[in-house]
Design a protein around this nucleic acid. Structure first.
Lengths: 210, 210
DNA sequence: GTCTATAGAGAGATAGAC
DNA sequence: GTCTATCTCTCTATAGAC
């Protein structure tokens, strides 16, 4: 697990250090570009020492893969019953967008997102996790909430699945753009306000006026 | 230029063959994964022969880079004056979506799109071309058309730039999903109808009812 | 568990014969 | 313009001493 890496004062084991260095390097250079040499150097050990903790390079990557899609929204939908969320209407969508925005600018999540982008075309596992993750955790659950909102009469009738995609896609594209700009350390101020603007526009598009 | 590669009956020069093989291999394995060895093998010559046509591997990639963003929409906005497009309303948006759909399923464009995805995080040039291309050729020009549609009273008043993003992002996300599915030769039938559905939904969201 | 040393494969690129 | 041969570098991974 990479989750308790940040727990301060922890005396990191070599294994933890390897995972940390690998995450950093792979998010920068991709799987191929992040050589065992570079990882070892970043940790401060010899290459051979790596193999005391992992069978091979791929096992390091597999360990990181586990945390790729586990964090962002794992408990976003769980913390409150979905019916409650639906009643909140626009407020819920704002919270959702805020969660995406947070993940976009959070260093750890940013690294994981970069790895997804880097390996999406190369790694079948990443590809399938990507498609499933966004489908299940975003489109599918979103569509459920939207369906309930339709029943509440808050938003207009439409295909909930389609509507969920329409809500989700601009957030994804926004996240992609921000991530790319940040790679080159370019300003993202214009884009960072777009998360909220998107929700406003979307709500304007679907809300049923009383 | 890669543009006349398809001209049938052409006796392809070695240089053309190299570019063709490189396009294929890079779109599959990325720049790093497409080694000069593999390219030479695909062409049917020795590695050293490659260097008679290109200074180095990077020069091959640069040649391909040129065609990355040149094709899709280069003349889509040019063939008709923008004012005419605006008057067509929903019909114009349908044509636009159809163009994206066509590019999504066209083998040549698909390869180029894959290369963009593969190198987006690795190559600064690709990154900048990506951001500029989608901004200029899509968001910016789209926003112009949408602005005119607002003036015609066809659609509701809003920030044209924001609206252009809202129209564009779902198409991009759709293209991404389709491309990923096709890598693993999975069915894309459900998604392929989404291009039109998106336009319907969008129009429903912005159209001014008479 | 870390080190040195090394194997073995694959990468990009060049020299020189034909 | 293509070939053979070769150089040099980097990569993943292992053996064996400490």
């Amino acid at each position: 697990m990479l989750s308790n890496v940040q727990t301060s004062k922890t005396i990191k084991s070599t294994k933890e250090k390897i995972l940390e260095a690998a995450l950093e390097l792979i998010s920068r250079y991709g799987y191929k570009g992040a050589s065992v040499r570079k990882i070892a150097k970043a940790v401060g050990v010899r290459e051979s020492a790596i193999y005391n903790h992992f069978k091979n390079k791929d096992e390091i990557f597999q360990e990181i893969l586990k945390s790729l899609f586990s964090s962002d929204f794992s408990d976003f939908f769980e913390k409150k019953p979905i019916e409650e969320n639906a009643k909140k209407g626009k407020k819920f969508l704002m919270e959702y967008a805020a969660t995406v925005k947070l993940a976009t600018f959070d260093p750890k999540h940013e690294k994981l997102f970069k790895i997804v982008l880097l390996e999406l075309m190369q790694n079948k596992e990443v590809r399938e996790q990507f498609l499933n993750y966004f489908y299940d955790n975003n489109i599918k659950k979103l569509s459920h909430v939207l369906f309930l909102m339709m029943q509440e009469g808050l938003i207009r009738q439409s295909d909930p699945m389609l509507m969920a995609r329409e809500f989700f896609a601009p957030l994804f594209y926004l996240r992609l753009e921000v991530t790319l700009l940040r790679v080159d350390e370019k300003s993202t101020v214009t884009l960072s306000t777009m998360f909220e603007k998107h929700v406003e526009f979307f709500w304007e598009s679907v809300a049923v006026r009383a």
